[in-house]
Computed example of a mutant assay.
Amino acid sequence: MTLTPKRAQDSLIQMTELVLPNDTNTFGNLMGGRLMYWMDIAAALACMKHCSAPVVTASVDNISFENPIKLGNVVHIESKVSRAFNTSMEVHMKVWGEDPVQQYRYKSNEAFMTFVALDPNGNSRPVPGIITDTEEEKRLYEGALRRRQLRLILGGKMKPEDADELKALFSL
């Protein structure tokens, strides 16, 4: 079965949330777990938009928090499929905080997640490929295979000696 590739831009999801008291820790900052919850939703929506099927989270890459998002600020999450493999999709996310009173935006974090598409029986199913248009989309697409191999090694699903893309980075 050959699926027609889709443009990365067509999977774009932009999600906005307001940080309320129940979303914060004792320092008045958005709790990391709450942000990860919102990011998981935004990423799943981008994948479902791309493959027109239900999806499940397969992995979450490192999430580093550059700047805290404060109570009363707005969270903006942008998610887009960066590469599609056979049944899985890597999603790139950018997160910004926005102070609506002072009217400025600041970067909070960036992350990658991987999702698997499911058929009606709950089994993995093929997904369409990705067509890249922008330089950023091309850069993310090219790096996705290395990130995938690293995920597979860390998850015990690939032997380091089989990671040709990663070995190429260290070969002279």
Rank of each mutant, 00 (worst) to 15 (best):
T2G: 00
T2I: 04
L3F: 02
L3G: 01
P5W: 01
K6V: 09
S11M: 09
I13W: 01
I13R: 07
T16L: 11
E17H: 14
V19H: 06
T24W: 04
T24P: 05
F27P: 00
G33K: 02
R34D: 02
L35K: 12
L35D: 10
W38M: 14
D40H: 07
A42H: 14
M48W: 08
K49A: 06
S52W: 05
S52Q: 15
V55F: 03
V55E: 01
S59T: 02
F65C: 08
N67W: 02
N67Q: 12
N67H: 14
G72E: 07
G72F: 07
N73V: 04
V75A: 12
I77R: 13
S79C: 14
K80P: 03
V81W: 05
R83L: 07
N86A: 12
T87H: 13
T87F: 10
E90R: 08
V91I: 15
H92V: 13
W96N: 14
G97Q: 09
D99C: 07
V101F: 14
Q103F: 12
Y106G: 12
Y106I: 10
S108K: 10
E110V: 12
F112C: 09
F112I: 07
T114K: 03
F115K: 01
F115G: 01
P120C: 03
N123C: 01
N123W: 01
P126N: 06
V127D: 00
P128C: 02
P128Y: 02
I130E: 02
E135I: 00
E136C: 03
E137V: 03
Y141M: 04
Y141V: 02
E142P: 07
G143P: 02
A144R: 06
L145G: 03
R146K: 11
L152K: 11
I153F: 05
P160F: 09
E165M: 09
A168P: 08
A168C: 09
